[in-house]
Design a binder for these strands. Structure first.
Lengths: 232, 232
DNA sequence: GCGAATCTTTGCGGCGGATCAAAGCGCTGC
DNA sequence: GCAGCGCTTTGATCCGCCGCAAAGATTCGC
């Protein structure tokens, strides 16, 4: 039961998709499973990059902190996604911090194990290229957003993206299925919690969203998308 | 002469570093060489991603254009660097446009050729992971800058980065060795050419830089770096 | 060598969003 | 069940940067 679930999630990742059952079994032997409570750290910015993680369940927040103490959220990572990509690239240190934002379960894979697998199974290395390239594209898109769009559109895009990645259908609309504060949204969009709060309040009064303490529900995704794509 | 130079540049890239002479020779056979005059396009955003390029000489500018026509400069690419990474990842379309900003020479490698090489030489695929991961890190850094720094610091960082990548020592200081307009700097920093112009004028009067029509010389790199790292 | 096109500079006014301040609300823990 | 902490809201003010406009510099083509 235990082992089966683990194998399932590993072969559902873009990284290990298509790997032979034998290799998966071998991989499993060198992998370690870890349960995380909400708020638990997975790794810290500046730690030696020795292990990367596949999220089996739950969600992680990946952040970077600048020299002067400002924090930026790079990404949220959900089931079958990876955290700690620096390990794949053979970098020495983790450039970011990963923290659980929900009770989670992750599978840790050591640098040595993955590098050995990539060397022996070129298809895994090729998959790794695709995985990181996808992240790179994501980051390009966000940079473009930051460069060309005003705050309201950036917040709209961010919320729609999160709703897509981690949305749960409910009677009232699509609920983002993990605690998400105004401060978090500010750190994803390069603004302040005050501006996020004002923006959400305005949307709430127009019936676009329904939000509260660390909670966002998108009530009218289509109208929010219109707003996100409008020029300005 | 021709062939030797090509092999030289290929094995100086991070992607093909360490590849055996035989494999390099084979690679060379499937590669095509192309000369570019300033302003020549290499590929366009939306083109099928069939070929990626190693810059042998000169410099390319990689840009993305948004739906509403705004342009963002993703990066400049110099000798021994790659353009068209989407091809490595097996994506269908080029997400960006590459244009020569100096007379250049590039070596084109087809999607089929590189994928075959990666499948047969895992070390190339592993190198590809590192190459793209480095770009990903770069992009994270720029996103962090855009999120947390004011325009002046962003311009300072950008100019210092360009000076590092493409700087030429001269009597007056470090000259950025390709034409670079106010508009270009604006598209790299998410501001307007007006603000860039004002900023450079202010620096010029303090003796930090010396700039003119599509030309920037850093006269006091250290002081500019102080400014770039100052809080604010 | 002259005109045109392109790039740059600079002034001015306005506004989006940051900052500061303070009160309201909702969890959580004991 | 109440105290206290963390999150959110909202107001008021301020300023960095944009947008517009127009003139000045530099390069290019014929």
């Amino acid at each position: 039961m235990h082992g089966t679930a683990e194998q399932d999630i590993l072969c559902r990742t873009d990284l290990f998709r298509g790997l032979s059952p034998d290799s998966l079994r071998e991989l499993r032997r060198s992998a370690s499973r870890r349960r995380l409570a909400i708020q638990d750290p997975v790794f810290h910015q500046g730690d030696p990059a020795e292990t990367f993680y596949v999220v089996a369940e739950g969600r992680l927040r990946v952040t970077q902190t600048t020299a002067d103490g400002q924090q930026v959220i790079i990404r949220y990572v959900g089931p079958a996604e990876l955290a700690g990509l620096a390990v794949l690239a053979g970098d020495d240190l983790h450039p970011s911090t990963a923290t659980a934002v929900a009770d989670s379960e992750v599978i840790g894979i050591s640098r040595a194990a993955i590098r050995e697998i990539m060397a022996r199974h070129p298809e895994v290395a090729v998959n790794a290229v695709s995985v990181i390239a996808a992240r790179y594209r994501e980051m390009q898109q966000r940079l473009r957003e930051m460069s060309t769009q005003n705050v309201e559109r950036r917040i709209a895009h961010t919320i729609l993206r999160l709703a897509r990645e981690a949305g749960r259908r409910t009677a009232r609309g699509i609920e983002i299925a993990f605690p998400l504060s105004r401060q978090d949204l500010a750190e994803m969009t390069g603004t302040t919690l005050h501006t996020v709060s004002r923006t959400l309040s305005a949307w709430e009064s127009r019936g676009l969203v329904d939000s509260g303490r660390r909670r966002v529900v998108v009530r009218r995704p289509h109208e929010l998308a219109m707003l996100a794509d409008a020029t300005g």
